[in-house]
Design a protein around this nucleic acid. Structure first.
Lengths: 192, 192
DNA sequence: TATTTTAACTAATGTAATTAGTAAAGTCAA
DNA sequence: TTGACTTTACTAATTACATTAGTTAAAATA
């Protein structure tokens, strides 16, 4: 009968996934939890803060899953594997992903830190592709951009044909990686 | 003293650009126009409908600018020119762009139609790149994805260093186009 | 067991969207 | 120009939430 902060966030996240971000209200969350609206303030600071917590939780979960997905892989394989994991999370949790996008505009330093963890993972993997480290930021910007934009735009098809969208993403990443290799691959240094 | 629907949309769009989407309220719009909130209902159906109108107006304006930017150009040049125009609009009108993203989740058929016009422009330009038409949808999905994702993620830097972000986008598009050419360029058919 | 914290509650306030009903000002035909 | 009609503004009232204040009971802790 006693409720924790984590319960509140989970419940709100579920509502977002089922009914969309715009239907997440303190009233709706409280009803789901069978408590009165003001009682939520024992766990959260405000509706905005709750939304940010949903986003942060989601981002952290994604980061963990992507790290798992990268284990035992390097180079293009690792990057594609991470990309598919990213897409899968979005398909499973569209409401949370919507909240993450909301947090892009309403984020705090915390939001930035969690995003940096994601960048850090991608950076390690990109370096394992044998790209010239000088260009690593350029490369990261392109990879994160493609991942975010491609998955967002394809999400509407992802519910009806998830497998097609997954293979399409893989193909798209192949194309981008081909461009990256052509442009940024390190030339073999002379043998010592 | 008399106000038109277009005035309402413009005013709301200005508020979005200046203060962000979350500060667009009927109250704020009415105050800017020096009328009472309920009077807005003579011009719009609801707050949601108003936001959609902001998005649709913005998307149409972007489409027009991108078509202008493409005139007299073909191939990679045309696509890069369109991409820079896309980015420029976002820098000029971050609030409208935020609203367009909102409309991605809360859109109507109208939203889809305007987006299709954008796709149609890009399709024409992509075909002028000499890609194999069989793969044109794949190519479009990648191009639109990169454009959306890259610009969204770079927007935060775009206000302080707009020129750097612009050239960086150009470079990123070069990379993607290199990948696309490597994979999808049509081979010369035998001479007839 | 006594004390302190936690987390629930009711009651009250403030803000914003929306609806209903009304009046004034503009439009247009006879 | 006058009178019907439409448009667009208004006030008043309703509703839905978010949020704050103050209170109480249960849980945790010492």
């Amino acid at each position: 009968m006693r409720i924790t902060k984590s319960d509140v966030i989970q419940t709100a996240a579920d509502i977002a996934d089922k009914n969309g971000l715009s239907n997440v209200s303190l009233k709706a969350v409280a009803e789901s939890l069978n408590i009165r609206t003001p009682s939520l303030y024992n766990h959260i600071d405000s509706l905005e803060a709750l939304l940010r917590e949903i986003a942060h939780n989601g981002m952290k979960t994604m980061n963990e899953r992507m790290m798992q997905a990268a284990i035992g892989k390097i180079g293009d394989d690792a990057i594609k594997s991470v990309g598919i994991t990213y897409l899968n999370y979005m398909i499973e949790h569209p409401g949370i992903y919507e909240t993450i996008q909301w947090a892009t505009w309403h984020g705090t330093e915390e939001t930035g830190k969690i995003f940096d963890n994601y960048l850090s993972l991608l950076k390690t993997l990109a370096l394992s592709c044998n790209f010239n480290p000088v260009n690593i930021d350029e490369i990261l910007n392109l990879l994160t951009g493609v991942l975010h934009g491609y998955t967002t735009l394809q999400l509407r098809y992802a519910f009806t044909k998830p497998d097609e969208v997954r293979t399409a993403l893989s193909t798209a990443l192949d194309t981008v990686l081909a461009g990256l290799h052509q442009k940024y691959d390190q030339h073999e240094k002379g043998h010592l």
